[in-house]
């Protein structure tokens, strides 16, 4: 592969989606972008880069960006952040929001949906503590194919066994042949939207919790800092930000500081103690966002399976 074209493609990706690709990601280009070059019957990567830079073929540009985003994810990934969300953050928010009776959560790199649905299961299990509350879960991602899968909520047998307990599987999914689909009551708790983290968040409104996990790693320091600064603006003063296990806010400005007690999330401006303090959050009009409020209502256990016996892949 020509170094020049590789560099040009990297520069293009950084500019349009913030993605940072170093030499070690060259294989990604070979396995994901070269097939596009071939299909479009282009002479090589250089031709593709030219087309992208001219900005005349938006659908092709979109496809290339989406091919380069890494979308690995599992249910309850790393478990601890979800435990802390359920056992620390949510209880404190529930007592701090007794008058507003509203909680809004943003999952900012939702990928194929495992993360927002994990949060939806937790919110559902805690729904009895929030009777009649407005509970909103907004899930966004840059990549349309990931969002399509997330909305459909259909997962392979492998996917539903990564991170998901059997109790959760039986309660929130139904089997369809070889795959499992989240039940409507769970799907309806998540509002999926396409959003580039490099763009403006103002239309999303204000949040109490932000999950932004395993996506900052693909950005450079300036982009990370900028994203954190803008997230701080739409996070409640006593809200919590959850990052990926290998991500931190060190060296990325002073908008967030790690919560030293729980070591699972970050709070705004180092006010670790703010969580739970009766700070009066201004009631925010959820800016123009047509995000219909969802009442916190528990999902009923799924009725017995109706799906026919799926073809079995045995390894016995």
């Amino acid at each position: 592969m020509q170094q020049q074209s590789f560099d040009a493609l990297c520069a293009y990706l950084k500019r349009t989606s913030g993605l940072i690709l170093d030499q070690s990601k060259q294989y990604l280009i070979e396995s994901r972008v070269l097939p596009i070059v071939k299909r479009e019957k282009l002479g090589g990567l250089a031709d593709l880069v030219l087309i992208l830079e001219r900005g005349q073929n938006q659908s092709l540009a979109k496809e290339v960006v989406e091919a380069m985003t890494i979308n690995e994810t599992y249910f309850f990934r790393d478990r601890n952040p979800f435990d802390k969300f359920r056992d620390v953050v949510l209880p404190k928010l529930i007592s701090a929001r007794q008058s507003e009776r509203s909680i809004r959560v943003w999952c900012a790199a939702a990928s194929t949906g495992q993360e927002p649905y994990s949060l939806a299961m937790i919110l559902d299990e805690m729904a009895h503590k929030m009777p009649g509350w407005r509970v909103e879960l907004v899930a966004t991602d840059l990549a349309e194919p990931q969002l399509t899968k997330a909305r459909a909520a259909v997962y392979t047998q492998f996917e539903v066994q990564r991170g998901l307990s059997t109790a959760h599987l039986l309660r929130y999914f139904t089997q369809q042949g070889d795959t499992w689909q989240a039940i409507d009551a769970l799907r309806s708790k998540v509002q999926f939207r396409q959003l580039n983290l490099l763009s403006d968040y103002a239309s999303l409104g204000r949040f109490d919790v932000i999950f932004c996990r395993n996506v900052l790693i693909y950005f450079d320091v300036a982009t990370k800092s900028d994203i954190l600064k803008r997230m701080a603006r739409i996070l409640a003063p006593d809200g919590a930000l959850f990052l990926g296990a290998s991500e931190s806010v060190i060296g990325l400005g002073t908008d967030f500081a790690p919560d030293t007690e729980h070591r699972a999330f970050h709070t705004r401006g180092g006010v670790g103690a703010a969580l739970g303090q009766p700070i009066k959050t201004p009631v925010i009009g959820t800016a123009a966002a047509p995000v219909g409020g969802l009442a916190a209502r528990p999902i009923l256990p799924t009725p017995a399976a109706q799906s026919p016996l799926g073809s079995r892949i045995a390894t016995r």
Partner: peptide, 21 residues
């Protein structure tokens, strides 16, 4: 790996369930 089998096993006192492969 049928949903009904999983439910039967859990009701009978299994703690977790792995579907092969």
């Amino acid at each position: 790996n049928h949903q009904n089998s999983i439910m039967r096993a859990m009701t009978a006192g299994a703690d977790e369930y792995i579907m092969k492969p």
